[in-house]
Design a protein around this nucleic acid. Structure first.
Ligand SMILES: [Mn+2]
Ligand SMILES: [Mn+2]
Ligand SMILES: [Zn+2]
Ligand SMILES: [Zn+2]
Lengths: 147, 147
DNA sequence: GGTGAAGTTAGACAGAGTCCAATTCTTATC
DNA sequence: GATAAGAATTGGACTCTGTCTAACTTCACC
């Protein structure tokens, strides 16, 4: 499931039911907190830090603790619902887009932008180190505002 | 300057004089602490975290504070003596190899290995976002021990 | 409705990195 | 070589991200 496959507008209770199914489909038991965290990520379809998720989820009423946000994000990563993006030395970002893709990263503003994965090809990669297996390829184009 | 351009064996006082010149050549005033930090990086030619630099420099006698290590590494990055490598969400690594190159990163052991930059080509990159200028391209191949 | 497992939580804790005012070095000049 | 002014270093307090734990709550199932 991804955000594009959801209708543009949904009744809130339908959205929560849909998210429940998505979670179940990935082997994650749906709870109130997990659904809200999933909603924060999938409704925005942007790259959010744990702190931003925590703030988003507790916008209206305090609903979810810091510990649960961290527990849940780790669980979502394990279950393949979201992906970690490591570009900023101070915090991890969580990416609801799990299709293979790369990133622009503005080192001044912190803005992260997707680069479609299937337009890019990387040639000339050497063999992996002996006994190692690939776990992911991250391409980050660091940019800044023109001088 | 890089480690390869130095003779295999040097008298310690020659090595320090050489490093002094390297620092001056990059607009960095040489001090005891900066020379020791440069030596830690350039004599090993590996990717070290700030903590590892601190430990290396204080191996024999306590010579350098944590604050100075951080100050100095930041200065070295600004002056182009070393480069930051951002692959581990918990700490920055400092890379004395400033020629364009990429990295294998073992997510289990933390080991970082260089990939020669001029064997790699990356095709199909989209135009940079409007008004932005490239600041660097980081390609990280994440690996782990075969399952 | 009762029971055990799964999930949540406050708050203590750890580690990386920053900051500051006081002190010590470096370097240029005499 | 002594002097003085600017540059660099320092301990330690502080911030921030993330982890951990033991108590508590909720959920699934009978
Ligand atoms: Mn950090
Ligand atoms: Mn961190
Ligand atoms: Zn993305
Ligand atoms: Zn390297």
């Amino acid at each position: 499931m991804n955000a594009q496959s959801m209708p543009m507008t949904v009744r809130p209770e339908d959205e929560r039911a849909t998210l429940s199914e998505v979670l179940r489909g990935h082997g994650v038991g749906p709870t109130h907190q997990r659904i809200e965290i999933a909603r924060a990520l999938f409704s925005r379809m942007t790259h959010l830090s744990a702190d931003q998720v925590l703030a988003a989820v507790n916008q209206r009423h305090a609903e979810t603790s810091k510990a649960t946000v961290y527990n849940t994000l780790k669980l979502f990563v394990e279950k393949g619902l979201v992906r970690e993006v490591i570009v900023d030395p101070t915090k991890v970002f969580y990416d609801p887009n799990t299709s293979p893709h790369h990133h622009f990263y503005d080192v001044e503003t912190g803005e992260i932008t997707d680069i479609d994965g299937d337009r890019i090809s990387i040639l000339g990669l050497p063999a992996l180190p002996e006994g190692k297996v690939a776990a992911g390829i991250d391409l980050i184009i660091r940019v800044r505002g023109a001088a």
